[in-house]
């Protein structure tokens, strides 16, 4: 029984690490795309210092994209730091050592209780980025459909790649949100079980 418990625990801890890494990738790609999409549009401002009103949305896009992605990375890094301690201890646990396994379970529950808000924020950030990038894909699709860039030209091929990249990052953001949602459902269930366990343990303690 303990072997199964330890394996399940390891699988979940490793999956959570994968979840954080997925978020890092999403955040890094968000930075890359906000730069790639907005910087060419505001190049005259950067190079010649000439400001035009139509640059404002692109300037805003670059700033918001950066801010969201940095926030996303910071949240992920904070979670990773606490989580790594659990991973390190888990690697040293023997399958026969019930007390050590329970110790890791207690640490994991304590970690989740403390970081519930940050984990939910990660999910929200993924959703915001996903929806935002899907919205930015709409004008790109319209431009392609309207053949604003004649096929065969380098700029048209580049536009297709930018569009595919935007859709891929949007999908990653929404995927990260869905797995965070599944994760929180499972762990919320566990916390409610520990609340029920608390009532039973209280009765035992009070004799």
């Amino acid at each position: 029984m303990e072997q199964t418990t330890l394996n399940r625990l390891k699988l979940e801890i490793q999956s959570f690490k994968g979840l954080i890494i997925t978020n890092f990738i999403g955040a890094a790609l968000t930075i890359a795309f906000s730069v790639a999409y907005a910087v060419p549009k505001i190049m005259p401002l950067l190079v010649a210092g000439s400001f035009e009103l139509q640059m404002i949305p692109y300037l805003a896009l670059a700033i918001v994209g950066f801010a969201v992605a940095i926030n996303w990375i910071t949240r992920g890094a904070e979670l990773m730091e606490g989580h790594d301690n659990i991973v390190t201890e888990l690697e040293e646990v023997s399958p026969d050592d019930d007390e050590a396994i329970i110790g890791i379970i207690v640490q994991s529950l304590a970690f989740y209780r403390e970081n519930q808000p940050k984990i939910r924020q990660l999910g929200m950030l993924g959703r915001v980025v996903g929806v935002f990038l899907l919205l930015t894909a709409v004008p790109q699709i319209q431009a392609l459909v309207a053949s604003e860039y004649p096929l065969g030209q380098v700029i048209a091929i580049g536009q297709v790649f930018v569009l595919l990249g935007t859709l891929a990052v949007a999908a990653l953001g929404l995927y990260a949100t869905s797995i965070i949602s599944r994760f929180t459902v499972k762990w919320d269930k566990r916390l409610s079980v520990t609340d029920e366990a608390g009532e039973k343990l209280d009765r035992i303690l009070e004799g």
Partner: peptide, 19 residues
């Protein structure tokens, strides 16, 4: 004993999460 049983059960028969 009760604590051991209840907490091991969380990962023995409880809902699991994987990517």
């Amino acid at each position: 004993d009760a604590f051991r049983e209840m907490y091991l059960e969380l990962f023995d028969r409880g809902p699991d999460f994987k990517l």
